Amino acid sequence: MYDDGTTGLDVTTDGLPEWLMPVARAALGVAPEQLSRFLPPKSGGGRQSAVLILFGEGERGPELLLMERAGSLRSHPGQPSFPGGALDPEDGDPATTGPLRAALREAEEETGLDPSGVQLFAVLPALYIPVSGFVVTPVLGWWRRPTPVAAVDPAETARVFTVPVAELTDPDHRVSALHPSGYVGPAFLVASTLVWGFTAGLIDRILHFAGFEVPWDRSKEVPLDWRA
């Protein structure tokens, strides 16, 4: 498990590759309203959680780490997502370093990555997922020293995979997801799956504010299964 041995965690842009700096700069000034229309309840309710948005550089260039939830799960079965989950008491204060520890801990538990090879470089404003009641803090990381990853528990995770940023920005891979509830949002047809919902929304906003976005046809819709 990750333990930095201090009372806090370093969040620094030192040594980031130049291509990742636009993401770091965008994260500094983005407001929660610019990321989602669903914001944490003013009452302070909701279950505190965190996700790790981990950028790396592989054989296909800059890439993003994702995972696919097991199809047997009650919540969001089979849906691609970032590694992450609810804060545990030992993660610490949700208002300070708790989300940082939770994001790294959950990523290690779900994908087997070595947290010591991850450099945290930014934290986005907390957002809300109404359907599950989670208050989610997105934590951005640079995979400075990559290690092998795979689904640690098949009952929780179907697979772990990376997607090149070039594929995420390619207009041919971009669609609008149409949910039976009437929800329409950005989605990505990559890695033999459809990335949609909260995860796709964050990717979409990061690409946009970092200046990576390429114009795409938002009228191209893909209907979601009624169980999604």
Rank of each mutant, 00 (worst) to 15 (best):
Y183T: 11
T13Y: 06
R47D: 05
S132A: 12
A86L: 10
E68F: 01
W143K: 09
F55V: 00
G185R: 03
P130N: 06
Q48K: 12
P77A: 12
H208R: 08
V139D: 09
V160T: 10
E33H: 12
L168D: 00
S36E: 00
E59C: 06
P171L: 03
P171N: 10
S176A: 14
A155D: 15
P146L: 08
G201W: 06
T193R: 14
A86G: 11
A50T: 06
G78S: 05
L140V: 04
V160G: 05
V136W: 08
T137W: 04
T147I: 08
S219E: 15
S49Q: 02
R69I: 10
P89V: 13
T162Y: 09
T157W: 02
D153H: 13
E63I: 12
P32L: 03
V139M: 11
T13Q: 12
E59I: 09
S132T: 15
T6R: 15
F209N: 00
P115L: 07
R60V: 10
P32E: 01
G112C: 02
D93R: 01
L178A: 15
G61I: 02
S36T: 07
P62E: 04
V123G: 07
A31C: 10
A210S: 12
A86D: 04
G133M: 07
A26M: 13
E18N: 05
P41D: 03
H179K: 05
P164S: 03
G15E: 00
F134C: 09
V195I: 14
L20D: 08
R159D: 09
L87W: 04
L28E: 14
H173K: 14
E213N: 01
G71A: 14
V195D: 07
M67N: 06
T169S: 08
E90C: 09
A210W: 01
P154V: 01
H76F: 12
V184Q: 14
Q48V: 14
W216S: 04
L113K: 04
V152G: 08
A27R: 01
H208P: 00
A151L: 06
G71E: 10
T111C: 05
